[in-house]
Amino acid sequence: MRLTQGTFSFLPDLTDEQIEAQVRYCLKNDWAVNLEHTDDPHPRNTYWDMWGTPMFDLKDPAGIMYELAECRKVFGDRYIRMTAFDASHGWESVRLSFIVNRPAEEPGFALERTETAGRQQVYTTRSYAARQPEGKRYG
């Protein structure tokens, strides 16, 4: 099951040229572009691991594309997303976030139904990938 989240979730995966164009747009707006990665695809997993330090003060997408290539070399079998952080007063939060890398195989999620008191149903979404320990989930 193809995982979708973030700004371009309804589009097919962006090509590197398209990613670069997005980065250029972010830098034009003075947002700091950062990379995050994870191998836990659960939608409630909001805190991904950061790749390196936040990249403030960059003028050109080349530096970020370089880091993306480096990150893919190490975590090519995980999800990588790009986030653009707006530091201006009043925002101080992420303005744009989209997936730039995904594992080759995404096994998807199981829906578990648990019956509790009064025949009430409790639902749990569990990722098949997350049954393995961290670092061994994909490939």
Partner: peptide, 14 residues
């Protein structure tokens, strides 16, 4: 290495 790379990244494109 991270320090040098950061400087290089800032200069990229210029």
């Amino acid at each position: 290495a991270p320090k040098t790379k950061e400087a290089l990244k800032k200069a990229m494109g210029g």
